[in-house]
Structure formats: C-alpha cells, structure tokens
C-alpha cells in the first residue's frame, strides 16, 4: 500500500499529492511517470512524476479530474493509501541525459499548458540545480486556473504567463507568446512543449515553421506501462513507437498528433458512461470515505 502524505488543491480541478513510495523516489528522474491503481477494481492511471524527495521517499503527483477514475482519486484523503503505485516508468527526459557542458550551450524554452505545468516543473528545477538557465511559458485560459506559478518562478530564469482572456500578463496562447518573444529579439535552440495534445500539436506546427527542434511528452491511453500491450502506440515518423517504453518524450515534429488524438478518444463513449455512473452514484465505487 502507498500512503498519501499530503494533499493540496491547486486550481481548476487539479490536485497535488505526495505519495510514500521509496523505491520509486530513489530512482525516478524528470520526464518519467508512474501508474496508480487505487483499489482492486480501479483502472491503472498513468501520471507524470512531478517532484520527488529521495530522502523522505516520496513522489509528488499532480492530476486533473477528467473522468471517473481521476474524480474518485480526488476523494482520497491524507492517511489513506493507494493499493498500487508502480514506477518510475518511461525514459528520463532527453535533456537531462545530455552532457552538461553541451546542455549549457542550448537555449531552452519550456511551454506548458494546463496540468502540463506539473510535469515541466521537475525538469526546470533540475535545470536550475545543474546551473542551466531556461525560460518558461505557462499558458492558461484565465488567471484563476494557473498552477505552480510561485514554484516555477523560483526555478525558471524567466517565467512568462500567457492567458487567453488577458486576465494576467500576456494576452494570447502559448504560440502567440513564442512569437512575441521572438519579436522581442529572443531566440531558442530547443522547445519543450507539454500539455494537452491539441496544444502540443499547435506549438509543433509553429516551431516547425520556425525551425526550432521541439520535444513533446505524449500521454496516450495506457494499460500496463511496461511495453506489453501496445495500447499506447503512436506513429512517430515512419515508425510505430510505444509511448510507455520508447517515450513518453518524442520529437514533436515527427508525431502524428491527429491520429494520437483520435486514439486518445477511443473510450470516450464508454468513459462518458462511467463518469455518469460515478456522478449519479448508482454503483459503489469505493474511496469516497463514506460508504466503506
């Protein structure tokens, strides 16, 4: 069992939890993910490692409630435990595997969208700890749903916020902000875009035009997360890749986003039903703290 040591509401249905998982905490690296299974009947839910404390043996996850399983997960409280917590899975971020002197020559811009801010945070923190300056754009619809702003400000060289409605800092989306930064005379040798697939797709369309190599972190539907089922397969260039073992990071200019988005929606009707069932409460789901 894996105990919840901390739970915090960030914004916009996004929650943060610290989980006691010493083996994972000892080995995880930025860019990797875990799979959480709440109880016997639960799904296996992939979530990015958002921070870790090797001494305390804890791993931080940040998740948004989008369907039945994540909604149920948000009802778990400090002191309760998840039945299964496996990781780290996937490959560490490509950047942190680069020789440090080469990495320091790169000019890197991170672009995060929504809950994607969470997985970007450990990478930027790692960069700061290793003396690499990087810039970060956080894109959000509006000011109230921003997450991890203060944390990110402490580790980024420059943090730019872009809100669709202009309620905070720059008015526009992440792509608009990239163009704005270039208009101000900034330039980058690498972009890392992490967020909803649709946002990553548009960032990649732009950076391809601008000729900036771009890394994205893909979040397809997964089952085992160990390379056994192929549910997570993506078309990357001419090759079929399994996101759980070959990724989750890929060259964004090679990913077939349209196909990936269709695949992500595969269980939509099925899941819609599960969500309804959960909201209307006509079946026992467990984990609500009131009925078991």
């Amino acid at each position: 069992m894996f105990k919840i040591l901390k739970k915090e509401y960030l914004a916009n249905n996004i929650w943060l939890m610290d989980i006691e998982a010493p083996r994972v905490a000892k080995h995880c690296q930025p860019g990797q993910f875990v799979i959480v299974k709440m109880d016997e009947e639960g799904e296996r839910i992939p979530l990015t490692v958002c921070d870790y404390d090797r001494e305390k043996g804890t791993v931080t996850i940040v998740f948004q409630t989008v369907g039945a399983s994540t909604m149920e997960m948000a009802e778990y409280e400090v002191g309760e435990s998840f039945e299964d917590f496996v990781g780290p899975l996937g490959c560490p971020s490509e950047l942190i595997e680069m020789p440090l002197d080469e990495l320091k020559k790169e000019k890197i811009l991170f672009v995060c969208g929504g809950v994607g801010t969470a997985p970007v945070y450990p990478q930027v923190k790692w960069m700061k700890e290793h003396g690499v300056d990087v810039d970060v754009i956080i894109g959000a619809r509006t000011k109230d749903i921003l997450i991890l702003e203060d944390e990110m400000r402490k580790v980024a060289a420059n943090l730019y916020i872009a809100t669709d409605d202009g309620s905070y800092e720059f008015k526009g989306n992440g792509c608009d902000k990239i163009k704005d930064l270039y208009a101000q005379g900034k330039s980058y040798t690498k972009v890392v875009a992490i967020g909803p697939m649709i946002m990553m797709k548009f960032v990649c369309l732009l950076t391809k035009e601008m000729n900036i190599p771009t890394i994205v972190s893909m979040n397809p539907i997964m089952v085992d997360g160990t390379g056994m089922c192929g549910a997570c397969r993506l078309q990357v260039g001419d090759e079929i890749k399994f996101a759980c073992v070959d990724g989750p990071e890929f060259d964004g200019h090679l990913v077939d986003f349209d196909q990936a988005m269709k695949r992500q929606a595969m269980y939509k009707t099925e899941e819609g039903r599960a969500k309804l069932k959960f909201e209307e409460g006509d079946t026992h789901h467990g984990g609500c703290g009131q009925c078991h």
Binding site: D224, G230, T283
Partner: peptide
Amino acid sequence: FSANEYLTRSNLMKAFDDKYDTPII
C-alpha cells in the same frame, strides 16, 4: 488491439465485470 491488450483488459483488469473500472471495446 494486440491480443495482449485485449486479454489484459479482460483478465488482469477484469473489464468483463461491471464492478471493475477498466473499459473494453
């Protein structure tokens, strides 16, 4: 689907049983 995915959803995740959350098509 790969047979592995289909069978894993059904056997390991018990998707055939309504009590379990994992979907199967």
